[in-house]
Design a binder for these strands. Structure first.
Lengths: 347, 347
DNA sequence: CTGTTAGCGCTTTCAG
DNA sequence: CTGAAAGCGCTAACAG
């Protein structure tokens, strides 16, 4: 049947404990013994039983990464960054830690379900990425779960979402508000006074922060916002397309459209073009995130670059290094990327 | 300390065995008893210990999905599709199965490492997505691993890569060869006779198949291929940019560039534009995969659409349904999407 | 540095 | 339909 640690021990003529020590490399073992054990492992083609060792040690090598949409490169890039950060050696069995990417699809229930599943697996850490849902009861439920997780020894990291109060979770945030503000300031500086805004789903922190930044810029410039200028949608291209058509219907005199993210902006560009409008001559467009494809849009997209690839490497050092973030550290700042899709308004 | 099944049993005044049966729902239990148990679970806020149950039952709910690059939507879309396919109820503990997305980064070693990790976790299933590496020793190593996995009861599914001989792995392939051929036939039909090809990394099945399709089309049209017309690179935008410059240097008379995938094609477009060439008037460009952003390129990309979102739903029914693929079923066919980036050659 | 000895928390026959 | 008991395979004190 399946080879167990005891079989290896027998073959190497040592005790099971010794084999375990060799495999985990966390305890001194004589070189000659180690070799003998390793040889036996190899000959028997032995593979450690993960559940058994997790049970005995009361921890596992799993690290859960929750994402809202795995098909969206925004999350893919973060997940990739996080994974390579934790991937290094250091896992219990001398091997790598297993990064578990879980796709919540933006659903609160699934988020909670995955958190429970991860709790059940006694995950070593869980990382929640992207904007959080702002519904009060859900926030409470998540906080409670996170508290249980940290109590059980699971490290919790929030990446791109605000800190969870009453929780020992480390938070690495992005400055969505500041980025949104910069973007709109740039457009205003160009002379725009009538700007449409395609926001993401409501009740999402990212959505709210970006929108707040936009409004702060408007206000600072003394521009009175027209309620017709804001439309909510999803974070995808299709949504950007529809929302832009809606915006145009509501107020054809808009000279700029600011989108919740780059995908939405691409959809907006398409809608504008179909409507016979030139970018940026007739309408300027701006995105957010600076995903790789944004530079290839024509004209290339003016957007805000977020340090997505630095996710998992907090300002206070890697959250995996055991050091938690020092209060006072700044958010991951956004960098305004001015490109071809924004220009001076028509007339 | 942490609540165990025994605590629940005590509170519900039943034996641990009964609690287990209620939780797993795979054994008759009196309704009144069940309720009592569920109530206790709720009151105690009990969470099943995954490792312990995996150890005792010798299986787990984990499903591993191996991807070459999680930041690439090509894989993200497939992973998402697979996850939603397996996500439904049916996991051991009545809950969802935990989909584990593992990022190999295209490295053979990491692929093997993850396979071992998954084997160690006694995964319920593993899905390998995307092109396989063709190095003989690696292929042998992977096959051996897969055989061990299936022997241990893990279901193995190959998605977008050729079947593994001597393995009971289910394979769902994409018709890369046919797609490549269609694309080039389209270009030839337009009048192109001098076509550059930016291939993916060597020793990858996807790369080889797409290239073979391209060459088959060339040959069928009686076009003698010039060795200078093919360049190998990576599956990303940057690579497409560099390769295009190289292609232009080698033979400025090229009238079309066929790229390994859409990202590469975008890079190619950028390089062409920087070189003062218009698309498609001076040079036509074609991609592969039809990722969401491709339609938003300007001009929009002529490409081949692959049924990525159907990954995990094989032609013979879902591979998760227990039914394996019937021999003779056809590959996931590619659909030629003719768009603005391809046109008749100059002159 | 190595062996012995208990469990970790759950599932699963086997009885009742 | 329910309980008792025997592990699943490994780790972690504790001695030597």
């Amino acid at each position: 049947m399946t080879v167990t640690l005891a079989d290896v021990a027998a073959r190497a003529q040592v005790s099971p404990a010794t084999v375990s020590r060799v495999l985990n490399g966390n305890y001194p073992v004589a070189a000659s013994t180690r070799e003998r054990v390793l040889k036996a492992v190899d000959e028997l083609d032995y593979v450690l039983n993960g559940p058994a060792s997790a049970l005995a040690a009361a921890t596992s090598d799993l690290v859960g990464i929750l994402v809202n949409d795995i098909a969206d490169p925004f999350f893919g890039i973060m997940a990739s960054a996080i994974q390579s950060e934790i991937g290094g050696p250091g896992g219990r069995a001398g091997g790598e830690r297993l990064a578990v990417v879980c796709n919540t699809g933006g659903s609160p229930e699934r988020e909670l379900t995955y958190l429970t599943l991860l709790q059940r697996q006694r995950a070593a850490a869980v990382v929640l990425t992207g904007g959080a849902i702002e519904d009060a009861s859900h926030v409470a439920a998540v906080s409670a779960k996170l508290r249980k997780l940290t109590d059980a020894g699971t490290r919790v990291v929030l990446c791109g979402r605000p800190p969870a109060p009453d929780t020992s979770a480390v938070a690495l945030t992005f400055d969505n508000r500041g980025g949104g503000r910069q973007l709109t300031e740039h457009l205003i500086g160009l002379g725009h006074r009538r700007l449409g805004y395609i926001a993401g789903p409501e009740e999402r922190t990212t959505t709210r922060h970006r929108l707040e930044g936009h409004r702060a810029a408007l206000e600072a410039a003394g521009i009175q916002e027209d309620p017709r200028w804001t439309v909510h949608g999803r974070y995808d291209r299709r949504s950007g397309h529809e929302a832009t058509l809606e915006l145009l219907r509501r107020d054809p005199s808009l000279t700029a459209v600011v989108a919740a993210n780059d995908s939405v902006a691409l959809g907006a560009c398409a809608a504008l073009r179909e409507s016979g409008l030139r970018i940026p001559e007739d309408v300027s467009v701006a995105g957010f995130d600076d995903l790789p494809f944004s530079i290839d849009a024509v004209p290339s997209l003016t957007t805000v670059r977020l340090p997505l690839a630095q996710a998992g490497r907090g300002p206070g050092g890697s959250p995996w290094g055991g050091r938690s973030r020092r209060p006072g550290d700044r958010d991951g700042a956004g960098e305004l990327m001015v490109r071809g899709s924004s220009g001076v308004p028509r007339e």
